[in-house]
């Protein structure tokens, strides 16, 4: 009896710890309105064409199944809410792009049990002013974080995808 009650307490602690690390740092809606400094405008729809599919899969290095993406635009600024798996769970990232360079990359919802250091400004500030090179890489080096390698990789990939998409929709 005592053993099981102790285990129950331990489990509760573990669960509450994991619940703690599953953080919602900002609602996507708030990120969008903050980026534009205005109420969230109506979302636009980007239908994934063959070219976009190829580029996204090349950047992600795995299959991409979505048929369309939502984004928000105001003149030369776009906001993208994208998701990618770090190790096991999805990381929801908001990316604000202004004049084809990143104004802000922010972790909005983090669901992994480890590696959430990527949510801090000291890390995401590295993406500021980053542009996309022709080889689909960022023109700035992003320093990794020990123990959060996969999350860092996910954020970098999503930033590259957002820059490409922004380029695609603002040009077209």
């Amino acid at each position: 009896m005592k053993l099981s009650s102790v285990l129950l307490i331990l489990l509760t602690l573990t669960l509450s710890f994991s619940a703690h690390s599953k953080g919602v740092y900002q609602q996507p809606e708030d990120f969008i309105s903050q980026a534009f400094n205005a109420p969230t405008p109506k979302s636009k729809v980007f239908w994934i064409d063959d070219e976009a599919q190829q580029v996204i899969e090349k950047i992600l290095a795995h299959k991409f199944k979505k048929m369309r993406l939502r984004y928000w635009q105001q003149e030369a600024e776009t906001v993208w809410i994208l998701e990618e798996i770090g190790k096991e769970s999805l990381i929801t990232v908001g990316i604000h792009i202004k004049d084809q360079q990143i104004a802000q990359t922010k972790v909005l919802i983090y669901r992994e049990s480890r590696g959430d250091e990527v949510r801090h400004d000291f890390f995401t500030d590295q993406f500021r002013s980053a542009k996309l090179r022709d080889d689909l890489q960022l023109d700035q080096h992003i320093d990794g974080i020990t123990g959060a390698t996969l999350s860092v990789r996910a954020l970098t990939k999503l930033s590259r995808i957002a820059l490409w998409l922004d380029n695609h929709v603002t040009k077209g």
Partner: peptide
């Protein structure tokens, strides 16, 4: 979701 269970899109208040 697709019939294979893959998430294709998630909508919330920000998408209307």
């Amino acid at each position: 979701l697709s019939k294979e269970g893959e998430l294709l899109e998630k909508q919330d208040a920000s998408t209307g």
